[in-house]
Nucleic acid binder design. Structure first.
Lengths: 207, 207, 207, 207
DNA sequence: AATGAATGAGGATTCATTCAT
DNA sequence: CATGAATGAATCCTCATTCAT
């Protein structure tokens, strides 16, 4: 059995100073991750950039992986906040409007710190099972499924699990590929076209 | 400027013995990659598993990355062979039949050595720009686009680039997520359902 | 463009413990250099002899060359201290007495750790331009030149740069060849003869 | 006792083809030595540049050092040819004229392939005792000594060994430093001045 | 709590040399 | 004789982690 590094943060960092240190560490990790890549992200360098000693780093995080996991978690939380809000907003909307909104949010969410997003996407498999990310995935599926069941009447007859899988895959794929293909130079018009088309793709499928 | 390790193979290994060595190295790399992950894939270990000395490894590959790049290339070639054949087969089929065939092939192609596929998918960004993979992406886009233009009359009016982007994203997403979600325990029935649904998704969008 | 290893020390080692480590490393390097030669001087061996881990070595020196450079520098400093003192002492002496003193000091200076001196002399070109050594060379030239100008009246008319070049070359050559030819078995009497003759050579030339 | 690599050439290479191979190897070694330095001079690279297989290299030279030794020897021979001729020419000349001629020749000899000369000068100590070079040194001393004894009457009373040591040192030093200090940009006028001055230095000393 | 010096296993890579063909 | 593929010991260097202060 391969030895897997521990990934849970060491303390809850309730104190203010601790909190600041932890933040600095996460910030530093994210920055280095983006600028240098995972291989070159060393704990010594993270500590240095965070303006903290390595010793302190290990006071709060038991391993390099724990640090990266925490960064992933933080990023994931940000995205999920946006996503959850969207689902609240969308609950009672008719399919077409709802899908349009969700697609828009999906693309927006993928554009929160897109460089970091890209790097993290690569690292997630490496860090072992991120409970957090998996949970988020499941949550998204649940939310979509719930919406679909609630709006069953607007749709053709269709297995809700399959439909969820297909819809989530399609929307995520567009959002994901959009980040990859030069996230920066994305004009508003192009986003609109993408949203229109993806909405059509999904709605057409559900009806 | 980040220093990137060289990724071009060193010799072309025309002789039989050389060819065998190279093959053994690629096989070993693939196996270790799958079983231990990229970080733990060391050149010494690769050489050992390949039953070859490290020196020989470096005779043919200038770096660890070059080795991984070659494995990626090989895997990519296999996939592309299948994909190209599918497009030939599909050229004159009507949309519905063609999409169904292409979706099927996409899922099949992602299941050629699915564990390796998963690992490689993660490594591709790390290895720098793989000319090969990018070229394949472009080729797939071109093939889809060509098909769509040829069958324009069966479809609603639609920008061919956008349509290509959407279709490729959707099909790939399903295929990709299918590998990730336990490729092994995929029943024939489930595949059929997935193919049906994805076909519906795409065809519905194009019509 | 040939890649040249970095040669600047990494930290200034202000703390006492650091200082001790650095000293041990330099000492070890010097010893191995003398006993085994440059090629066989490996960083692992240096660390071992210094009673320190390789990691610590690289905490203070970015490369093997940096270590050797530091040893050269240290040796150079020792020599220059003696040489500078000699020039102070000599400023107002008449030519004959001054030259005699300088020749004596040159030979003595070359005999500070003569084995190390020999090895280092070989390595200096290999380590790239040692700012330090070049600076010392220039300084010696400047000191000689200054002396000659100050004592112009005791000498025939002569271009000071040429004279400096000739005098430095001659004195250094004798000192250098003396170390090479079995530094150990050098009797006092022989040294006296050498000093006498070299003094005569130089003074004869200047008058 | 340190293991020293063998330095004697393996065969006498009487055959024409052999001769050509050996020449190509020596030429290649010299070129790489000059262009890349000793560390980077590998036997594989030498063979490649020489257009010969490594195997063949080892047919003629038992080790890398043997190869370098042979290059040194060849260079040394060239220099010694010139030097010996000079001594023949000079035998019956009066001191002043003779010294002037010898100094000129010394400078010229140091400028036969000066880049190679520089590199070799560094390597000679590393290659262990080069019988050849030592012999040449002794021969030069003997030639000088012989000349001095023959012309004793033109000189003051002086121990011939000491005188030889001093003269050889002085002349070599000037020649050596001249190569080191930018051999390339040496004008004829500067050479003349150097010769004049060095001659004066040495003759002044002997008289 | 914080510090940062020290650790040392481990990994990538080179290169002189051999030897089967 | 020539070839060049194969060898593998040896080397440099990194970096996660610990622990005395």
């Amino acid at each position: 059995m391969a030895r897997v590094p521990p990934t849970k943060p060491r303390k809850n960092a309730l104190q203010a100073r601790s909190r600041a240190t932890v933040d600095a560490l996460l910030e530093a990790t994210a920055r280095i991750l983006v600028r240098e890549g995972f291989e070159k992200t060393s704990t010594n360098r993270i500590a240095e950039i965070a303006g903290v000693s390595v010793g302190s780093l290990y006071q709060y995080f038991p391993s390099k992986e724990a640090l990266v996991a925490a960064v992933i978690e933080r990023h994931n939380d940000e995205i999920m906040k946006v996503v959850r809000a969207a689902f609240v907003e969308v609950t009672d909307m008719p399919i077409e409007k709802a899908v349009r909104r969700l697609v828009t949010v999906a693309i927006e969410a993928h554009h929160i710190d897109p460089d970091l997003h890209r790097i993290l996407a690569e690292q997630i498999p490496r860090i072992g099972q991120l409970k957090d990310v998996e949970a988020s995935n499941r949550e998204v599926h649940a939310l979509v499924r719930a919406y679909l069941e609630r709006h069953r009447k607007e749709m053709r007859k269709i297995d809700p699990d399959i439909a969820t899988f297909i819809c989530v895959s399609a929307i995520e794929a567009v959002a994901h590929n959009t980040v990859l293909n030069g996230a920066e130079m994305l004009t508003e018009k192009m986003v609109k076209v993408l949203v229109d088309e993806t909405t059509r793709l999904v709605v057409g499928y559900l009806r």
